[in-house]
Structure formats: structure tokens, C-alpha cells
């Protein structure tokens, strides 16, 4: 029964509950099992937890690589105070939020549209080919996406300005002004991640029993009614997952933006990861950068908790 739930909602939590409810006949935990889990846990502890502890301890120290004569004295909460008062940090967070608003709603709307188009169309062949194509942007190395951006957005010989020119617009300085650059990185991100939303929505749509869709089409002629009342409920779990994953990934986003704009012009596209990287590795103020990283970590953890609560609730038996 659990399995059916899982199929219809597209969420995997249900099989877990099935496993966990049937504990009878399970071998008890023993040393061999511990030896199987041990190395992985140890590795994750060493490369995951240890650096975090070091990040926290660095965040309480004065640690400027360019000024070794200062040493690394303990400074308590000074770095955190610096960060909390640092308007650049807050504006980087604000920009990251703006970037989220520019990209995610658009990607969700387009992704659902694409999924609906590919499932409803009579052109099964082209739709199947396009479905495979959707994987390409997701797999494309983000660094290379940034480099391609440098090429196609080029003001002088970029192919995009030529296309605009064909319809009598432009030329646009895609990376030249603060506002345009923000729009440009959002557009680039949409190229790469809208397909992800579309694939998630597609898997949600395929889990809708066709009978219900047909029945609803008999009752109402408006596709919106059908979508809202019949299909959308099946999409919601997947879209919630997308929302949290995209939030986490936008907090992580570094490579594409770094290559395309270096956070510029000025600081206009300096998202939070790019800013922390600059403070840490171009200004070399590791203490302050660590404090920023720790604050960021808290944010990441909140997201992880939300995600786990929503999608793996059944595990807690």
C-alpha cells in the first residue's frame, strides 16, 4: 500500500515507512554491519564535520593571511559583529534573494508549461526527443555555461545581439550595466535549470492516472480547471522539492556567475557565495569569511531540515 502512495505522488517517502514498519525478521545490528557503515561515516566525519569545526573556530579568530605579523589571536564574536554590520554581506544576501525571485518563479512556470506541452501533444516523437534534450543543460559544466555566455552575450560580435538586431532591437550591453548583468545571469540560470523543473514536473504528470484527466476533460472544457484540480495536486510534492533544492543551489551558486561576471560590474551580480569567496580568497580575511560561512551554514541547515521534514517524514518511527 505504501508503494502505491509513492507512485501517485512521485515522492519516495512511502517505501521507507514500509521498510520501517516491517522490522521483524531483520538481523540485529552487529559488528560486521558496523564495519560496513563505519568507513563511510568516518570519511564523512573527517571531511565533513572536521572542516566545519575548524570553520567555527577560525570564525572566532583574527586570521588575515596577508598580515601574518598579526598572528591569529582569539577575538571572540568580533568577526560576527563585523559580518552583521557589513552592508556588503547583507546586500549580497539581498541580491541572492532577488536572483531567486528572478529565476525560480519563471523556471517553475516555464517548467510546468514544458511538461504539460510534452505530455499533452500529439507529436510523441519530437516530444520524446526533447525530453532527452532536457538533460543536456543540467549536465553541462556550469563553468563552460559561463564561458558560452561570454561568447553569445558579447556586445560586439555576440550572436544574441545580432538576433535582436534582426527584429530591430539592441544592441544590448548584456554584461555592461548592473541591471542588465543581473538579468543576464538569471537568463543563463534559467537555461540551465528550467529543464530540471520540467523533468520533475514531467515525472509528476506521468503519475496522474489518465482516467481522472479524461473524466475531468469531459466535465470541463477549460484546461486550467483540469490542471488546477486534477494535475496540480500531483505536481505539488515535486515542486516543493524543487523549491527547496533550488534555494540551496542558489545559495551555492558560484561557478557560472564567477566565470560570466566575476560578480560585476561593480558588485551588481555578487551573489553570496561569490562574495564569501572574494573575502576569503581575494581579500584573504579568513576570520570574517569563516563567520560568513558559518552564518550561511545555519541557513543551509534550516533548508535541509525543512526538506527532510517534508520528504522523509515517515522515517521517524
Amino acid at each position: 500500500m505504501g508503494l502505491r502512495d509513492n507512485r501517485t505522488t512521485g515522492v519516495v517517502a512511502a517505501p521507507l515507512s514500509r521498510e520501517f514498519s516491517g522490522t521483524r525478521g531483520r538481523p540485529r545490528f552487529n559488528w560486521t554491519a558496523a564495519a560496513m557503515i563505519g568507513p563511510a561515516v568516518l570519511a564523512l566525519l573527517l571531511i565533513g564535520i572536521y572542516p566545519l569545526i575548524q570553520a567555527v573556530s577560525t570564525s572566532f579568530k583574527l586570521y588575515q593571511i596577508t598580515k601574518p605579523y598579526l598572528g591569529t589571536p582569539w577575538v571572540g564574536l568580533d568577526n560576527y559583529q563585523t559580518v552583521l554590520k557589513d552592508s556588503l554581506f547583507w546586500s549580497a544576501l539581498g541580491r541572492t534573494g532577488l536572483f531567486f525571485l528572478l529565476t525560480v518563479p519563471l523556471q517553475v512556470a516555464l517548467g510546468i508549461g514544458v511538461a504539460l506541452l510534452l505530455t499533452a501533444t500529439r507529436w510523441k516523437g519530437p516530444a520524446a526527443v526533447t525530453r532527452v534534450l532536457l538533460v543536456l543543460p543540467i549536465a553541462t559544466t556550469p563553468t563552460v555555461v559561463g564561458l558560452i555566455g561570454r561568447l553569445v552575450y558579447n556586445r560586439d560580435f555576440g550572436v544574441l545581439n545580432w538576433m535582436l538586431d534582426l527584429v530591430g532591437l539592441g544592441p544590448v550591453s548584456w554584461l555592461g550595466s548592473a541591471r542588465a548583468a543581473m538579468f543576464t545571469i538569471a537568463l543563463t540560470d534559467t537555461w540551465q535549470w528550467m529543464p530540471f523543473v520540467a523533468l520533475v514536473a514531467l515525472s509528476g504528470l506521468t503519475s496522474v492516472p489518465p482516467d481522472i484527466v479524461e473524466a475531468s476533460k469531459l466535465e470541463t472544457s477549460s484546461w486550467w480547471e483540469t490542471f488546477r484540480n486534477v494535475q496540480l495536486p500531483y505536481l505539488l510534492p515535486g515542486l516543493t522539492a524543487v523549491l527547496i533544492i533550488r534555494t540551496a543551489d542558489i545559495l551555492k551558486l558560484f561557478d557560472m556567475v564567477f566565470v560570466l561576471t566575476r560578480g560585476g560590474p561593480g558588485v551588481s551580480t555578487e551573489l553570496v557565495s561569490v562574495y564569501v569567496q572574494r573575502v576569503g580568497f581575494r581579500v584573504f580575511d579568513l576570520g570574517v569569511a569563516s563567520a560568513q560561512a558559518v552564518l550561511l551554514l545555519i541557513l543551509c541547515n534550516v533548508l535541509a531540515q525543512a526538506y527532510i521534514r517534508l520528504f522523509y517524514r515517515e522515517v521517524e518511527v
Binding site: L44, L52, Q54, S290, V294, L297, Y312
Partner: peptide, 22 residues
């Protein structure tokens, strides 16, 4: 289990600094 999954959400920039020092 939760801890293993939550690694998906940690931003690399958070561990990049200590990795560099280490």
C-alpha cells in the same frame, strides 16, 4: 540518515575555507 542527506544542502563555500587551511 538525516545527516547523510543533509550534506546535499551544505554550500561548498562553507567547507572550502577550512579545506584550504587543512
Amino acid at each position: 540518515w538525516f545527516w547523510i542527506i543533509s550534506n546535499r544542502f551544505i554550500s561548498p563555500i562553507v567547507v572550502a575555507l577550512p579545506f584550504f587551511l587543512l
